[in-house]
Each structure stands twice: as C-alpha cells, then as structure tokens.
Design a protein around this nucleic acid. Structure first.
Length: 486
RNA sequence: GGCCCCAUGGUCAAGUGGUUAAGACAUCGCCCUUUCACGGCGGUAACCCGAGUUCGAACCUCGGUGGGGUCACCA
C-alpha cells in the first residue's frame, strides 16, 4: 500500500467509555461510523476511553465487544482484535500523552497548574465560571521544578482574543469567541489525560479522518482544534450527531431505566430490527423504503440524510420493524428462538402431546417481539380452561349460544373420535357435518374452538387448535366441557 | 444565566422560493376470514409565533418562543 492510499483512506472510530452496557445512542453512533467507513472502503475502529480510573466497571469491555460484533459492526482494529495503531485502550496509552503535553508547555500552549480543588471550588462559589489562568503567570522553569514534588495538573492555554471556527459536515460552520473557552485540564493529577486531550492525541495518532460523535462535543470542538493547530496536526472532519431521546426533553438513559441494546435483545427484539430502527432515528434515505439490512445501510448511507435535530425513540415503530423481521425468519430459526420461551409453560397446560411446531408456525405471524409468545400461549392454561365462562359459546355474529353448544358438542365428540381413528381430514369432516345438520360451518368452528380452548381469542382457528392440542387432549377437553354444560 | 445548536402531523421524517406539503409507525373505518393476527383498501392529522425580503415563503433575513447541548481533575 502506497502512502497516498493510506493518506486518503477513510478511518472512523467508535470510542465509548466502558460503562457496563451498550447504550442505544452509542450503538447508533457506532452504526453510522461503521456505515460511513465501510461505504468509503475505509476502516472502522474501536477505542476504549477509560481514563477515569474511578469509574471502572468489571467486564464492561466485553459487553461492548460482543454487542458490536453481534450487531455486525465488525471493527477492523480494536482492543481485542489488534491493529497497527494500538494499544486501543486509552489507559494503556498513558505514556504517550505526557511528552505531547510537555511540548505544548514548551510552546506556551499549555501550562502547569497547582491550584487546589478547594480554590477552584471557591472560585465557582464566587460566580466565576472559568478558571482565571492564575498559574499561567508562574515562571516556566520554576513551575517545572515544583511539578517534581507537588501535585499538578496541565492546562491548555487558550487565547483570550479572537474567534475559532470549523466546519461540521452536518451543522456547517460553527464559530465561537475564544474568550468563551476555558483553559481545560489536559493531564489530571493522577497523570492520566482527560478526554479533552486524549481524544485529540488518539484520533491523530490513529489516523482518524472523520470524527463521528454526539453533539455534546460540538461546543468543545474548537478547543480540540486549537490543540491540533498548536501541534501542527491536520484537523479531522467532524460529524456531530443529535441524541436519541426518550421524550422531547430527556435523552435515552440507561440509568433512568431506558433499555440498552442487550435489554432489547433479551426482550425479544432481533438485532437486525434494532439496527434498522436506530438507523432511521436521525437518518433517512432518499427512497420510500424503510427496511434496510446492514449491508444496504452501508450502501445507502449518506451524510446528507443525517438530521440536525434530536429524535424521540418510538418503541411502536421498532416493534413494527421487528415483526417484519420475525415474519421473514426461516421457520426453523423462529422455532429455535421462540420455543425456549414456550417450553417452561407446557406443564401448566395439562395437554398430553402438544404440537409445539404447529403452535410456533401459528405464532410467527402473530408476534412482534419474540417474548410475545408467552402471552400468546397463555390461553392454553388448564386452570383457565376448566373454569372458562360458558357464555363464550354465545356469538352474536355467528348466531351461536350455549344451547347450540349443548346440541353440537356431543355430536362433535363422536365425530372427532371417528375422524381421529380413521385419520380423515378434519376440515372436510366438519364441513360435511355442518351441511348434514343444516348449520353454518363457522358456527361449528366457533363452538369447537371455544370448547377445546375456552378462549375467545386464539392464535389460529378451530382446526389449528385441534392440531396444537392433540387428539387425546381434544377429546378429554370436550368431555370436560360437556360435563359442565349438562 | 453566558455561549453554541435545533424547530414540518402524536412519533420518525421527505421537502432547499411557485407542491393538491411525500412516505412510514401509531390511530380510525372498510374488505378478507373459522375467533385473533397477517394481508389489502381508505380516512383523520403538520409547516412554533411575529415582522420583513419577494409577484410569490415550510424554504431567505431579523426578533420572539420552545427544546437540546455546553460551561468538571466525566467522557
């Protein structure tokens, strides 16, 4: 690979701090960064921002790795997969930052600060919103000496005059007065860089060409650019994303109870549907279609389709998409996914040989979330069946009632027994039966279905229910109902 | 509060000076039907407000209002 190519290759990164779960908003940021890089034939990488030692969470990295991978957002470089620009965990890059900070000090673009947290707090209490550059007055050589024995911090020296501006690929020109900017801390007193410093150094040293991240960084980007400029580094392109909201004034927040990516998976959402849905939250394609596979998203993604305003997460629409994805699943796959939710409940049905496969095939078009199968099968509970309201036999539209049930059910008992023994087609048998007795097929179906399920709403019709419940249990259920009727 | 950003139906959103202001979810109605669902057809519903600019503004300008972000030794 020649250097020209390396220079022009798009490189994006997803840089979460390991909090112990995969936030939906973070997943969307990763998705856009992935799509953009892949579309451009570039690289997508993962970097962990763990410079806050106090906020470490055990095993938090694993959740990020597995969530990204299961969603198909395969990173070319990252902590667990390696790459030429590692390490990809910020805390392991610690040694990298100090020399650069020292260079900035040398140039006058940064300085040692010995102010205590107490003094800073007092300043705030007095109404100062920014650090007063007090330690900038210190003689550089003396400050360097003090730093050997005293706790210190290194701050960015931001000009007090002039304006800074940059182009955001979605918001356009962003301009701020330098006097609005604070002398941020670059290196903390534990020797760790702050995010403000580390992200600049890392994005540069990892050759990131396009920085895709949340809008919360939009207003500090001018400060980062000052750093790039001071170091003589080429600034990356910026793409800031508005947040995913729970409602018009609150971001989606795991801490406030909103589900994370893995929560949605556990609730029975398909990863393809989640990815598809979150892609639509803040981005829209040029066509009317809204169903996109990850591959299609990579192909169709465009920066111009990105929204400038926040979007509210709508679980209804996610459900709709999810039901679409469930419907097109191969039956075997659906069965494997759905049956674990059904099996634990079979005991409560008191059915000899329930036909779970048939049940699942009926359920596939009826659930929008995998866990829906739990509610959708609860009608099979034996306790409910034994005591169901006999008035269910009454159906005004079909003109059926308890009296008709009393007449029909004994006949059905004999008919079905014979049908089962001779292995005849049940639907045909019932049809003949209806004709011979001069009643409507729909009436027979209604009575039979109620008689064996005790439920007005079932996933499938009478013949389907017979198949699910099985011949023996159908007959015994008919007997139970008949005993109650007479 | 200062600074930055944003503003089309309930929600996601097309739209970039002249449109009957798309489409999707949700909602409502009808059809299909062996209940429910699926599917099909149709309906209700929007340019935050006020000034400009212009023959003409959802679109351009300014001012309000509303919302978001930021102002940490968190990222």
């Amino acid at each position: 690979m020649d250097s020209q190519k390396i220079e022009s290759q798009v490189r994006t990164r997803f840089a979460p701090s390991p909090t112990g779960y995969m936030h939906i908003g973070g997943m969307r940021t990763a998705l856009y960064a992935y799509c953009f890089a892949k579309q451009q034939g570039g690289k997508f990488l993962l970097r962990l921002e763990d410079t806050d030692i106090e906020r470490q969470v055990d095993g938090a990295e694993e959740i990020i790795y597995s969530s990204l991978k299961s969603a198909g957002l395969i990173y070319d470089e990252g902590p667990d997969v390696g790459g030429d620009f590692g390490p990809y965990i910020q805390s392991q890059r610690k040694a990298l930052y100090m020399p650069i900070a020292e260079q900035l000090i040398e140039q006058g673009d940064a300085y040692y600060c010995f102010c205590t947290k107490q003094r800073l707090q007092e300043m705030h209490l007095q109404g100062h919103t920014k650090y007063d550059k007090c330690c900038l007055q210190l003689d550089k050589a003396i400050a360097r000496q003090r730093a050997k024995t005293e706790p210190f911090v290194i701050r960015q020296n931001i000009p007090t005059v002039g304006t800074s501006s940059f182009e955001d690929l979605i918001f356009g020109t962003i301009q701020v007065e330098n006097k609005e900017l604070e002398d941020n801390i670059l290196i903390k007193n534990d020797g760790m860089p702050t995010y403000n410093f580390a992200n600049v150094v890392d994005d540069y040293t990892m050759n990131i060409t396009h920085v895709i991240r949340g809008v919360e960084y939009l207003s500090s980007t001018p400060k980062y650019n000052l750093l790039y400029d001071a170091l003589g580094w080429k600034r990356p392109q910026y793409i800031h994303l508005q947040p995913v909201m729970r409602d018009s004034q609150h971001k989606l927040s795991k801490r406030k109870g909103d589900p994370s990516f893995e929560d949605f998976i556990n609730q029975g959402y398909l990863k393809e549907a989640i990815i598809n849905y979150i892609a639509l939250l803040g981005w829209s394609g040029k066509e009317e279609n809204e169903k996109y596979s990850l591959q299609e998203l990579v192909h169709k993604f465009s920066l111009s389709g990105l929204s400038k305003s926040p979007s509210i997460f709508d679980v209804q629409k996610l459900k709709w998409l999810n039901s679409l994805y469930i419907k097109e699943l191969d039956f075997d796959v659906f069965f494997a996914l759905a049956s674990p939710h059904i099996i634990p409940q079979i005991d409560s049905w008191n059915i000899l040989n329930p036909d779970i496969k048939t049940l699942c095939s009926l359920l596939q078009s009826r659930c929008s979330v995998l866990t829906d199968v739990i509610d959708l099968t609860s009608f099979l509970k034996y306790e409910d069946f034994r005591s169901f309201d006999l008035n269910l036999f009454e159906n005004k539209k079909q003109k059926t009632d308890v009296n008709l049930a009393k007449i029909v059910i004994p006949k059905l008992q004999l008919l079905l027994q014979q049908c089962f023994e001779q292995d005849n087609n049940l639907h045909d048998v019932l049809k003949d039966f209806a004709e011979q007795n001069d009643i409507k097929l729909a009436q027979v179906m209604w009575i039979l279905r109620i008689a064996i399920t005790g439920s007005a709403i079932t996933p499938g019709g009478a013949t389907d229910m017979v198949k699910v419940i099985g011949n023996d249990s159908v007959l015994s259920r008919l007997k139970i109902v008949l005993d109650r009727l007479l």
